[in-house]
Design a protein around this nucleic acid. Sequence first.
DNA 1: GACCCGTGGTA
DNA 2: TTACCAAGGGT
Length: 288
Amino acid sequence: MPDLATPLIAWYRESARDLPWRDPNFGAWGILVSEFMLQQTPVARVIPRLEAWLERWPSPAALAEASPGAAVEQWANLGYPRRALWLHKAAVQITEQHGGVVPRDVDALLALSGIGDYTARAVAVFAYGDRHPVVDTNTRRVLARALDAQSQPDPPSTRDLTAMAAILPESEERAAIVNAAAMELGAVVCTARSANCEACPIAHICAWRDAGYPDTGDRRRRQATYAGSDRQARGAVLQHLRSAPDHESALEAVAATWPDSLQRDRAIDSLIADGLAEASEGMLRLPR
DNA sequence: GACCCGTGGTA
DNA sequence: TTACCAAGGGT
């Protein structure tokens, strides 16, 4: 096993981006919110929304006092609005079950709404400095290339945690940096579209590079077309409710947000089923 | 494991 | 222009 940790740490200290949540004083709550927002949403779109969110709700207790609909409204156009609902629920859980303090224990974090393998360990490591493997899609790609000579990673698996744990240094502080560095490398140098090996600190020990960049294929599913999809219909209805006075609107007005009535009704029903909207007396509104 | 869930930037 | 891509998680 080549030593990836040493060059990754040196490179990270030299060239990591200066992101808000990397400020040592950012706090566990801010980091937790940032991780929710960063789930499938690019960094550049998260930064302004994160600042606004934390200004409005500077603690889990503050968010817990708000309505779920307020969270959905504040989420704005970050996408996957269920995350706003999950984050609100997590804030309630933290307030009621953890005295308003973001938990440090991975299992306690995993028990919170909207938190899975990645987010739980990201909070434990980046907010509290504990030693765990943190694996996101960037890390999986970096390890797949550097260690397995694959152009793209296999689908997510618990094996990923084992693989990442194997390259972590003993030191908690250095382990945290290696976690962050693997993600950073995948985000800015060894990306899905291209591998900028001239800028890569581990190019000299990269199995994929050594093998001549073979296309080993990947089993990722093609992303469904968004235009005209149910997802777009849901987004149109929800965007309408976000901007409506008191976040509620008559069903006739909602109807104007999407031309296909069958698809529109399906969107409304699924939004209600997901808790993203409520219907009563001919009105549709964000949940109160 | 398969499938679902938003939105906007980019090549 | 179309398709890919983005710090995942729940069911």
